[in-house]
């Protein structure tokens, strides 16, 4: 077997790994380092879900063998909260993460780690991009849920935080909004539509 010893600095921690030459960087990150925030979406290099920040630029970690990243410094989505910018907004999160949270930048969330890392690469180069620049810079990242509108707004939100501007108010209702259980077990919201009560007990749910 063709194996090599490599060192990866991931989110500030040095890791010494023995990997097969054929192992992709994304597999080393997910399987050897157990950092499963970096996703594999398409297996072809198209979708960008595996984007990580390597030595100062965004790369698709499924288009790089782990041996090629020997000695490099990598940031994954798990490391975002430890970045110097984290906590600049209204939470301990990185402003980009907070932007996705506040601006409803995700639905299923599969593309989100890649979007966040592509967003980081952009904001490191230019902390106040135009909408067009944001769209160009996430053009290597596919999202099948949001239609991209709120992803763009999420990165704009982060740019607002980084530039000391008041970011827009979140369109998303957060905890604290009053919710009461409706007679049918659903939840009546302010808009009058009902959803399931996720905390209710179901008959037969406690199996021994």
């Amino acid at each position: 077997m063709a194996e090599k010893d490599i060192t990866l600095t991931v989110n500030g921690t040095d890791h010494e790994l023995r990997v097969e030459s054929r192992k992709l960087l994304v597999h080393a990150i997910r399987e050897d380092l157990d950092l499963t925030g970096t996703h594999i979406g398409c297996d072809t290099g198209n979708c960008g879900a595996c984007t990580v920040y390597k030595d100062g630029e965004a790369v698709k970690s499924c288009l790089l063998f782990a041996v090629q990243a020997d000695g490099s410094e990598i940031t994954t989505v798990e490391g975002m909260e430890d970045q110097p910018e984290a906590g600049m907004g209204n939470s301990d999160l990185h402003p980009i993460q907070e932007g996705f949270h506040e601006m409803h930048g995700l639905q299923c969330g599969y593309c989100t780690p890649g979007m966040i890392m592509a967003g980081k690469a952009l904001l490191e180069e230019n902390d106040d991009p135009t909408e067009h620049e944001i769209r160009e810079n996430i053009s290597g990242n596919l999202c099948r849920c949001t239609g991209y509108q709120n992803i763009v707004k999420s990165i704009e939100y982060a740019a607002d935080v980084l530039n000391d501007r008041e970011p827009p108010e979140s369109p998303v209702e957060h905890e604290g909004a009053s919710m009461e259980t409706a007679p049918d077990g659903g939840v009546e919201t302010d808009g009058g539509c009902t959803g399931p009560d996720l905390t209710r007990e179901y008959p037969g749910g406690d199996q021994e």
Partner: peptide, 12 residues
């Protein structure tokens, strides 16, 4: 250059 693939691919 900017018409080749996407930013991540252009970096490599």
């Amino acid at each position: 250059a900017p018409l080749v693939a996407d930013p991540q691919i252009r970096n490599r």
